[in-house]
Amino acid sequence: MAATTEYKTPIEKATPIESRHDDHLESVLKPDDLTADAVAKGQAATGYETISLWDTVKTFKVASACCFAAAFSAGADGFQMAMNASIIANKGFVQQFATDVADGKKFLAAGTISSWSATQNCGQVVGQTGISFLNARFGRKVGMYALWTLIMCSVLIETFARNWKIWLVAKLFAGMGVGAMQATILGYISEVAPVRIRGSMLMLYSFWWTVGSFFTHVALQRLNHRDPFDWLTPIYIQWGHVGLMAIIYICLPESPAWCASVGKEAQAKKWLKFIHRDVEGYDVEYQYQVRRCISKVRAHRLQFFCRQNPAGRICHVTTI
């Protein structure tokens, strides 16, 4: 069921929100800022905010599929992270990476396990922080390729690691990969998903991550019954996930919202047409203007902290 244009409110007609001191507010905000401020307050809508959730999915089939595929890729990373955390119980893994011996038995020292965990957490922080600059400068697709490279490198190192120090490097790359994925994929979904189903699509990320983690434990449990000393098979399985992620990231379109935020009008309209080619009556020009103004709000968000003097006027405005 396609949405009609009756929900649309032209951006040019958006009315700035009133203030107790209009002349001061107008002196701070320029005309373009007033438009963006109106968009931020919901006075310029995409026109599809009032249709039901299921109707939104049926109307925006391609956009929904793109978000689903992006979220599905999180399952592969969920498998890897759960495998890294659980494989330390594998007898073969312990024999290979043992750092201490007691009573003739090899085991992993607590300090070694802690260093792996801490390194992975540090890598996650680095990945989340660093990828944000890459995403803002070069786009979401480049960010996807970067996070895929990090994950691929971690799996490659895991494949050839034979001592705890090399495994430490693998944990660092794995942490950076998951951090980069969280910052990139969640942002991509929030920009591509229709407003009505945006929350549901973002929840799919956690869903597939959990599913990937669940199958890790299933695989390790089955492997433990068959051959408790086989620790390489779970690592080799990850190459299939890496290949699947590559296919998904190659096929996904660029985020039109990012294109609009950096002034790439032609590319933004191109991807808007591609993602919404199945939506009857979709006004690309209007939707581009909405995204352009929304991106302006995100980049130059104005927040007013009001203090009143005895005369009851705004005497302090802070821009962040």
Rank of each mutant, 00 (worst) to 15 (best):
F79R: 01
V101E: 15
L252Y: 04
H24W: 14
T15I: 15
P310I: 02
A183P: 04
A63Y: 04
I157F: 03
T99M: 06
R301C: 05
E49M: 06
V297N: 08
R226I: 13
V62H: 10
S295G: 07
I275C: 00
N121A: 15
L134P: 02
M83D: 01
Q96H: 05
H21R: 01
G263Q: 00
Q43D: 08
Q308W: 11
T159F: 03
P253E: 08
R298P: 10
L252W: 01
I87T: 10
N135P: 02
V28W: 09
K91G: 09
T119I: 05
A14L: 06
G130M: 13
Q221V: 10
E285Q: 06
F107H: 14
I151T: 07
V169I: 12
L186W: 10
P234G: 01
F274L: 04
W271G: 00
L220N: 10
S154Y: 05
K273Y: 05
V279P: 02
A44K: 06
S114H: 14
M152D: 03
F79W: 07
Q287F: 03
P228Q: 00
N224F: 08
D230L: 01
A98F: 07
L223A: 15
S200P: 00
Q182G: 11
Q308R: 15
L25P: 06
F274C: 07
E285R: 08
T112S: 15
V169Q: 03
V279Y: 04
V126E: 00
A2D: 07
K270G: 10
I197P: 02
